[in-house]
Design a protein around this nucleic acid. Structure first.
Lengths: 138, 138
DNA sequence: CACTACTTTAGAATCATTATAAATTGCATG
DNA sequence: CATGCAATTTATAATGATTCTAAAGTAGTG
């Protein structure tokens, strides 16, 4: 379980100053047992509700982007108008529930190892991302 | 090889009036041997260059969206700020070249059949999309 | 032709995101 | 613990892509 001084360490070690705002966001994002999927809009609303201090929207954008750059968040783009951030940065894939717009983690072992049989000269594979769209069954 | 009257038929049969603008866009998009990947911005630029008639931006948006709805185009969202349309609407996956921002088709047989070992009650799988990010090999 | 519904259009409106520049804060140093 | 400086935050403005609007144009039907 991460505590405040854990977050301070985490931030410092990646060259980010542990400011009030970043710590607040850390607590909200990383102090959980389960993976958390959110859009910037979501995060902004939650911060407004759960916190008495006001964090400016620009700071929320900045923080999420620097957390992403430092590898603390992963971005999953599901369509033109919706991009989620994922606190689970391990190698894994996703269900997207079309009926509810909810993103759900697939563990690495939930998806058979994927073999790509084509390669391009001078290029190497950086990542493989699978998005499985699901919908109601009726 | 599709000709103009082929496009007229195609449009009519899906309840779209074959207007000058739509035919122009059809010719540009579908009168090719190879799959074509484009953003709306790309398409707009190409139309401006290749055509003497001016097609308004709103019409380009409308047309691409109705072609997508009719199943003539597939949309591939690669990140928050970039969404491609693909004239290849068959079941297939993609390479995204991070170095050039180019999208490249993978044929269905280029990717081993993907087995999802998890299922959610009341939900069924609608589609499986694989995006393989590649980069220069140096 | 004439009518009607569909389509196109230019420009305005909207929305999310990014840029700006001033105020504030963290922290190393003395 | 005061000082200085760079990093950070902030409110607000700017941007840019997409959508909306409502007026003008066009296709297809009878």
């Amino acid at each position: 379980m991460n505590n405040n001084s854990g977050f301070i360490e985490k931030l410092r070690s990646s060259g980010l100053r542990p400011t009030k705002q970043r710590l607040e966001i850390c607590k909200l994002l990383f102090d959980r047992k389960k993976t958390f999927h959110f859009t910037i809009g979501d995060l902004s609303k939650i911060l407004k509700k759960e916190t008495n201090k006001k964090i400016s929207l620009a700071t929320i954008y900045n923080t999420v982007h620097s957390f992403k750059k430092k590898g603390y968040l992963k971005e999953i783009s599901v369509d033109r108008e919706k991009s989620y951030f994922d606190t689970n940065t391990s190698n894994h894939h996703h269900f997207l529930d079309i009926s509810t717009n909810e993103l759900i983690d697939l563990k690495e072992e939930d998806v058979d190892n994927i073999k790509i049989k084509k390669s391009l000269p001078g290029k190497k594979i950086k990542s493989i991302e699978v998005l499985v769209k699901i919908e109601n069954n009726n």
